[in-house]
Design a protein around this nucleic acid. Structure first.
Lengths: 339, 339
DNA sequence: CTGAAAGCGCTAACAG
DNA sequence: CTGTTAGCGCTTTCAG
């Protein structure tokens, strides 16, 4: 194994000089720097991570806790995780992958062992039991998601209220007066993950302002349950001309069912979704949608945590602005059927 | 920060004793052990990861390289990654998440910096440029996937040939004589990722043995392209009574199209898939399928790599046996339409 | 069964 | 601009 001492000897300088060439923490004459760099390349030197961490008490690792249950929003999680990993690398950090399994113990473990310099928690719940620990922790942390009480914490999330409002505006702008929301599974609302409720409240408020009638129904992901929900909406609000879907698994069944019923999208009925771009773009009818900006969220979380490590940022909530992409699934309200 | 020395002092023993209590590498009297453990709990001691890595030259970290392009098989990747993380934890290892972005350089970096004790590479391509480095590396590695030349490497993968054969047998057993395969996008075959070809060859061989006609058509994930492929199959082999789908994105469109054409599944036509359980179980008609055993693959990869770290395992390819789950999408061949 | 002590490879004062 | 040196916290011989 090639050590810093080997490099120093080869370059005919002291160990500290090599160290400083690497860290740039003090000025080095061009000639020495060059000699050292040549030696490093020649010997194929890589600094030892453990030694570095011990001496500097910084590991250059960011811990990322992802949820264990993989039943929801998997591609989004994955996209965030990948964005976190690549952004972290571009800032000189590696990423340690932790699953929710360990729960709060993981926070303690990371903190105690100094394995990571900071942590990013995904899929935070409204009342997450890792939060008290995180507030006390010496190391900075950033949440992806928004808990009930974000005080003393840094959070990044999509502005779901704004996303809801955006949907309402888009459909109202097309003339729709009765909208139905196909929501997440009831369990999601009961678990109070927050985002679903926030979307709904944005939607409700803006609909009220715009004088649009809104109906909300939670829905499981299965084909059968989408069918049941659709039937129910049809019974309760036959005048519904537009759907907002916030349920990744429900979009395809919904489109299939409408097609089956001979209701053309968007001529007879408009459909829009709050979902990952991929899902929206690849649906059987490309969906007008508000995207969950997974990459931006991951990138932002890392940048935030890195800034905090440098003492350049404090706590606070950052809500990313939603963006609406108009595709082929929404159109003007059809003329009311003549009696 | 609580150090080992603090614990030693509190317990009235030497540092090495504490260390040995922790590692169990030499016998300790019950009374000292108890005292030490009490002190550890009392002080809330956690060993410092960097110091440990430096002194022992083992980091207790396994690096996991996941592919950067997330266009394919995302839930499977995620499931493998999570299985890797949880299994690793249960063996005392943490997982470092690397993306494919760095390419071969990542292998060198991990190796050089001693950041991880071993690595697991996902989504290996037939002729992957990280493989030569991995063969020379001092640290053990395990591939998830099967490259063209697995010599000198450890690999874990699904036995896709057997999976193909299993499909052929199942359908032949139900009396089907003409089968069509809806395959992955042409790009997947061109990239020679291996698994698609292997499935096909298993399918072909067993079909030949069983006297079943087989037609294979690659297919993009979009609704339109599934429609086109289906039409083409119908033209070329009107007698086709069963489909094997190896393309996560094609299953739902296929079922929707068949429904639209008034062909009932499984009464008029059988459909089976090689895909994750979730996809199969939640399809609009629950699909008879051969699963990609993501969890098993992740777990196996970790166990393999841990065994190698202990010098208890060598190179070689392990192909996991596929399992067929019969659901509602396959049935006996319909009686040939009377002329 | 337990202690003492020598590093592991690097960083960061402290000196010049 | 560069060198000397004292640790960082832990593991692991070597002694007893």
């Amino acid at each position: 194994m090639v050590t810093l001492a080997d490099v120093a000897q080869h370059a005919g300088v002291s160990a500290s000089t090599v160290s400083y060439v690497l860290s740039g923490k003090r000025s080095i004459s061009a000639s020495t720097r060059e000699r050292v760099e040549r030696s490093i390349a020649h010997l194929g030197y890589h600094p030892n991570a453990g030694a570095r961490a011990l001496a500097s008490s910084r590991s250059n690792i960011i811990a990322l806790m992802i949820p264990l249950r993989t039943d929801m929003y998997v591609p989004v999680m994955m996209e965030i995780a990948i964005a976190v990993a690549t952004t972290a690398r571009s800032h000189g950090y590696d990423v340690l992958l932790l699953t929710g399994e360990e729960g709060p113990a993981a926070v303690r473990r990371i903190e105690g062992s100094a394995l990571a310099d900071a942590m990013i928690l995904m899929d935070v719940e409204l009342d997450d039991d890792r939060l008290p620990l995180l507030r006390e922790a010496a190391r900075p942390g950033v949440l992806v998601g928004l808990p009930a009480d974000p005080s003393g914490l840094s959070c990044v999330d999509l502005d779901f209220e704004a996303a809801g409002a955006l949907c309402a505006e888009h459909l109202a702008g097309l003339g729709h007066r009765e909208i139905a929301v196909i929501g997440e599974a009831a369990a999601v609302y009961e678990r109070h993950t927050g985002f679903a409720e926030r979307t709904l409240s944005g939607l409700r408020e803006r609909c009220r302002e715009l004088g649009v009638r809104l109906l909300h129904r939670p829905c499981e992901g299965s084909y059968a349950s989408v069918a049941a929900t659709l039937a129910r909406v049809h019974d309760e609000r036959p005048g519904t001309t537009a759907f907002v879907v916030q349920n990744e698994a429900a979009t395809d069944p919904l489109l299939a069912l409408l097609r089956q019923q001979g209701r053309a999208v968007p001529e007879d009925v408009s459909v829009m979704a709050i979902c990952p771009e991929q899902v929206a773009a690849h649906a059987s009818v490309p969906l007008t949608s508000v995207a969950v900006p997974a990459q931006r969220m991951g990138r932002h979380a890392v940048e935030r945590v890195v800034a905090k490590l440098r003492g350049q940022a404090g706590d606070g909530v950052v809500l990313l602005e939603p963006e609406l992409t108009v595709r082929e699934s929404t159109g003007p309200r059809p003329a009311p059927a003549p009696d």
